[in-house]
Every structure is written in C-alpha cells, then in structure tokens.
Nucleic acid binder design. Sequence first.
DNA 1: CGCTGCATTGAAATATCTCAATCAATGTGG
DNA 2: CCACATTGATTGAGATATTTCAATGCAGCG
Lengths: 250, 250
Amino acid sequence: MVMERFLKGRLRHDLSAAEKRALEGVVADTMVLAPRETLVSRGDRLDNSYYLIEGVMLRHLEDQRGDRQLVEVNIAGDFVDLHGYAMKRLDHSVQSLTRTVLAKVPHAALSQVIAVHPHLGRAMWFSTLLDAAMHREWIFRLGRLNAEGRIAHLLVELIERLRLVGLYDADRDFPVPLLQRDYAEACGISAVHANRSFRTLKERGMVVMEGEGRLRILDEVGLRKLCDFDGAYLYGEGSLALDGLTDAPC
Amino acid sequence: MVMERFLKGRLRHDLSAAEKRALEGVVADTMVLAPRETLVSRGDRLDNSYYLIEGVMLRHLEDQRGDRQLVEVNIAGDFVDLHGYAMKRLDHSVQSLTRTVLAKVPHAALSQVIAVHPHLGRAMWFSTLLDAAMHREWIFRLGRLNAEGRIAHLLVELIERLRLVGLYDADRDFPVPLLQRDYAEACGISAVHANRSFRTLKERGMVVMEGEGRLRILDEVGLRKLCDFDGAYLYGEGSLALDGLTDAPC
DNA sequence: CGCTGCATTGAAATATCTCAATCAATGTGG
DNA sequence: CCACATTGATTGAGATATTTCAATGCAGCG
C-alpha cells in the first residue's frame, strides 16, 4: 500500500481496485534520503520518477549567484518529478527537507501500466496539472501579496494539502519544518524580512515558533483572512470538481 | 494546416504524417475573438479546449478586490486551456489581448484521437508540462528579480517563444502589444512603476515605445543580461532535450 | 469640443533589503 | 567539563525599491 495517498482527497470516485493494484506494481524500489539531500538536479536526464511516501521535499530554481527560489513543497502522496516522465530532463532541482522515504518508479513501468490502464495515465496527467495549478497560485502569491500575506498563504496551502491526505493535526507541531531561510526562498523575500514577518504573525497570535523550524498554527482562520485564501486551485473533493476524470473515454 | 505550429520548435523528431492528419481532425470549428474578450472564466466547466491559431491571449487569476495577476501569455501554436481536458474546470480565466483566431477542440474528439495515437496524447501532456515549466520560471521572475529584470525577463521569454514558432522579427513592432498595465499585472508591480521601469529600459537603449502597446526591441542581448536569462525551461530544440518523447513505448 | 484611455511625472509614504551585530542552542575536540 | 565553532533566530539602522495619490499630457473619437 505504498501509494495509498496518491491523489487522496482529489478523486471523486476512487481508483478501481485493479488500478490500485496496477499502481502499486510500478514501484521498483524504495529508498531513504537524509535531510537536505539532493535527489535530482536541474538538467539531469531521468529514467525514473519518484513518489514521496513519507517526509517533505523541496523543489527549486537557482540564479547564477546561487540564490534559490523554491517552486513547490512536496508532501507524502506527491510525485516529486512525474513531469520527468514526459519531459525526460528536469528544469529544476529536488531536495529533501526532512528524512524522506521514496518509491522509485521506472518510466518503462509507467508506460506499461498506462498502456493497460489508460485511466491511470489520465490520473497521472491530472497530478502534473495539479502542480501547474499550484505554480499559478504561487505566481499570484508573489505578485499580489506582501511578505506577511505570502507566508500566510504558503502555510494555508500546506495545511489544506496535508489535510487532504490526512496528515494535518492542529494540536501538533506543523509537520513541515521549514527554516525561516526556506520561507524566504519560497516567498521571494530576504531571510531577515521573513523573520520580521513571522514576528508580526506571532504578535497577532496566529503562530508560535519554537526554533529550528518547529512551528505551531494557532489561528488558521486568521491566516486565511490575511491572504484572502481560496483553495479551489487544489481541486480537493467538493471544490472545483474533476467530474469526468474517471468516466472519460480515455 | 490549422495546427501546424503546435509544439513547433519543441519536438526533436516531428510528429508523423498520420499523427499530423489526426491532429487536424480534432478541430470542430474555428472562431474569432475581438481584443479583450473573455473566452473562459475561472470555475467554468469545460467540454472543449481551444487552440490559438493567431493572435495573443492572456491567462490570469484575480483577487477579491478584482486586481489581476497574469499567469501566462499565449501565442499562436499554444493551447490556451488544454489542462481543462483532464481538469474539467478552470482555476483561472482566459482573455484575448489582440483579435484572435481559435480552433475549438471537443474533449471527446481528443479522447478518440489519443486512443488511436497514444503518442499524440503524450505530446499533449508534454504541452501542458511546458506551461508548468513556464509557470515555474514566472515564480522565479517574481521572487528573484527586480521590476526592470522582471520586464526584461518577460520580454525575452516572449521573444524566444515567438522565435520557436517563427513569428519573431526584430525589425518589426513586437507582436505582443501588451499595455503597461498588462506588464504590471504580469510582473507584480504597479502600473506607475512599470512605466518608470520602461523609461530606464528606454534610456539604456534596449527598447522603444510608440504608445498603445507598440514596442520595438533594440537590444535583446542587453535584456538577457539584465535578467540573467536562461531559456532551457522552454525546452526548445537543442536545449533541455525531450529525448524519448517520440520513441517512448506509450 | 469634450470624452476617454493610456502614458508620464512628482512627491511623500511604505515595504523591503543589506549589513552588521548579538543571542541561544547544539555539537565537537581536548 | 570547558573552550570553541556552527547554525539558526533576532535586532537595529540606514539604504533602496516600490507604492500610492494626485496631477498632467496626449491621442483618438463621437
């Protein structure tokens, strides 16, 4: 049941039992990454994609000075480089944030399974389109929100996505232990300014920080208001629907 | 030959003649949009996707105050909402910038063609992944560049993409007549600041503006330097390759 | 002629960055 | 156990970038 979180909370009708079995069959291997290890780098040629079973990974671009811009945070249930299946080369790098457990999926196995279960291919396509939808919202976040709003928006996105796959518990530490530097790299602000923005979030009673990326969310509603959050882009069940995904001819 | 620009400059080996024929067959209809008309709005349910034959379209998100953030500029050869095929609902809106000519492609027709030509389905998937790669670069642009750099980066992206489909001529007016307001909405800056940034680009002799979105590029190299441009993310022939797209089993 | 939409400019207010320093927690070697 | 180095969080102060508001110019157009 390695891939039980794949598209969890996203598919109105679950995958069929046969499809689930087939999905499990594509896994060639599992592996573990220590925190802050690189899985794939920009420009790498890929014959496998990786599915994140456990932990958190970060995807980023880099400028010539080596400054990084995060473009996505991946949690359990995400493929971290499924687009490599159709792209073959990555335009950005993928690293672990925490210790992670990954399933290695050879592209050849994907091709075989998709040939037999076209609907599964559609689900995978859909999964990469979810990445694109999140990218668009990140563009919005950077283009239209101030520093505080950007951090709030990122936090709420992560809360919603964790919730969809059953990994969010408001009474525990936030399970995505980003450092302030990471928030800065995600939100297009300096680390110093991230620190100051967090201070005001703390002063408003929305979060508490306990150092080293340990964070607790106290006021999700407040965070949502701060950034005018609308989670439709996450295509969770009950919001923007994916009617037709499961019953389409292909 | 309605869709002759589809993935032009992107596929190492061209589509086969049979695939090209099949591709032309999915077009149900063509239509014309006047400038600044809305094609689809956020939340719309879709049974068709649209391919842009001629003209320029803009895709944007909106916040509650009605302020817009562009997330992509589409030119001839692009599908403007192909992700609607697997998503079924759009999370953002699509409008014409200029007068546009569009091909209407029913999703049912796509499904049929993909069932017969799986490779064509892969090409379409690839096309939506190009959107995602561009989105990532927009995130980088907004997160790491200043106002001038953002504008330069957008201009160079458009130059490269136009060139790939054979629509760029440095001696003519730039064929994407964005207003300064549009640049502002694309680059996450105010319209006033966009104006000032353009002034310095003009002072450096990189562009000239002739009002109403009429623009001429004088110094592409200078623009590239200004924003540290690396076009690998556009996956044009000769850069990050798509080896395997055409010879993959699926 | 008087609109209207777009481009342009000035001036003051804000947001954010950079640089430099300090603090706290943690780990390491002796 | 202590001295020291390292990492991340925090703060202050001054420099820059960007926004906002308000006004002006300019062209097309009924």
